[in-house]
Each structure stands twice: as C-alpha cells, then as structure tokens.
C-alpha cells in the first residue's frame, strides 16, 4: 500500500505514475484507485520476473511504459498473463 499512497500523492501533484505489482497485491489497484497499474502473474518480491529473465523484465517494463502514454483516466489496469518462469 505504500507505493499506492506514493502514486496517489504524485498524481495529485501533477506527476504521472505507473505501478508494476505482482498479482498477490493486484487488489490494491482497484482498492486504492490507482491511476495506472500493470499486474503480473509473478511471485511476490519478483514483480518484473525471475532473476536473469531479461526478456520478461523487458516485456513487463514495455507494458508499463506503454500504459504511461496510453491511459486516459484513473483506474487503468493491464493484467499480464504470462506465468512466472525461471530465466530461460
């Protein structure tokens, strides 16, 4: 929830944000009315992917950066469906 509060305060100040979070905490996106959230199907502590999984980390980041520019209202959520995996 800490990052949720930071996101809300930043947006209030006019600073656009995007949050990347693991699925276990995805309920925060709606519960805290976050502006832009990417939710991954990854295990807690590893929201962008497994150690060394450069390809997956890039995929998640590109989704987040795309959301920064494409979202037009609060509450925009993109859920990525790729399951957690070890680095290929």
């Amino acid at each position: 929830m800490s990052v949720g509060h930071v996101a809300r305060v930043f947006e209030e100040a006019g600073l656009p944000t995007v949050v990347v979070m693991a699925g276990a905490f995805g309920f925060r996106a709606q519960g805290m009315s976050l502006p832009r959230t990417v939710i991954t199907r990854h295990i807690g502590g590893r929201p962008l992917g497994a150690p060394g999984d450069v390809e997956r980390q890039h995929l998640v980041l590109r989704a987040a950066l795309d959301l920064l520019g494409s979202a037009v209202s609060n509450g925009t959520v993109r859920e990525l469906t790729e399951p957690y995996r070890a680095a290929p």
Binding site: F27, G31, G44, A71, Y84
Partner: peptide
Amino acid sequence: YEWNVRGYAHEAADRWQYDTGPFA
C-alpha cells in the same frame, strides 16, 4: 503464485480504500 494470491486476499478489505483517485 495461486496460493500467494489467496494468502493476501483478506487485505483487500483493509482501511486504505478509495473510491476515486487522481490522474495526471
């Protein structure tokens, strides 16, 4: 992963709930 999600589901009802939010 699936049980990780279920294990934290109860927190969805904690005190930090907002009906609306800012957007920049």
